[in-house]
Write a protein that binds this DNA or RNA. Structure first.
Lengths: 149, 149
DNA sequence: TCTAAATTTATAATGAATATAATTTCGAAG
DNA sequence: CTTCGAAATTATATTCATTATAAATTTAGA
């Protein structure tokens, strides 16, 4: 995935306004976190991170705001793990890989996807979700296998 | 997706045995339902369907058995909808489309998928999940749009 | 047929997410 | 800049799919 410039709070402010979203401190900070950190966090992770800065933040606000961002289509749901909703503010077409060892979710570049038999269907969303090991964890696993073989 | 012959209970019995799975009536019936109906049902749907035939069946057994089939890797999880685990006994590489109108999940044939930037990663599972409308619902929706425009 | 191990059941518990109702904040009109 | 109705946020209760537990039943080999 290509590198991108960090968004300032002003950038986020303008972006939300352009999408007809009323501004609040919480919305700015939650979106800023999603767009800049790009770790596809869960609602709980966002809450734990932001409450250090904003102690008045409540978990319900994080859940509500993320649901609202989904409705407004400025955030997409990452469903790579059952019972663990993650969120991504990058809307370009890409896949996700969850490392089953460290739990992190990585963006995956899709060169090409060709489907067939979709005549008559209408496709609104496409999600490509992989599960496996990230390079760091794969290396550790290989070392361990050599050790114990 | 290609048509396949309906599996008999004997076929299921042999298949489970080949995968070192102890036989029980419940396991036979649950797997038979998954492999023959191919509607990617939820645990609840399987329970509601099978309890008519087998009144002694309990919901916990359906959940336990599906989890067990996942561990044994004879069934795959379909995660196309948050908070709605669905199950598929067909292990060949294909995608799923959930119709957001009628709720049914369809198999989608994948002609080609090319990813890049995966150097160093190990990929254990790939899931392609689409959301949209099936042909029947898309047609109804188009008719309604014409009516009301 | 018998027996130990595995499976199934009924029930309670879990936990992420949502609903509710009271409180606070936002932002447009004056 | 102030006011005020609408919208956002909070704390709390609730929901609901799924998992855990412990007792009862079933399976499959001896």
């Amino acid at each position: 995935m290509e590198k991108r410039k960090r968004w300032s709070l002003e950038d986020v402010h303008q972006y939300l306004s352009e999408h007809d979203i009323r501004i609040s401190l919480y919305r700015l900070k939650i979106f800023e976190y999603l767009i800049n950190e790009r770790t596809h966090p869960t609602a709980e992770e966002i809450y734990n991170k932001l409450k250090k800065e904003i102690p008045s933040l409540s978990p319900a606000t994080v859940y509500n705001t993320l649901r609202f961002f989904l409705e407004k289509k400025i955030v997409q749901l990452v469903n790579v793990e059952k019972n663990e909703a993650r969120y991504d503010a990058t809307l370009s077409w890409h896949g996700h890989l969850k490392c089953l060892s460290c739990g992190r979710v990585f963006d995956i570049h899709i060169e090409n996807l060709k489907l067939s038999g979709l005549e008559g269907f209408q496709v609104y969303e496409k999600h490509l979700d992989l599960r496996g090991l990230c390079p760091g964890c794969a290396k550790i696993k290989n070392i361990k296998e050599v050790e114990y073989d």
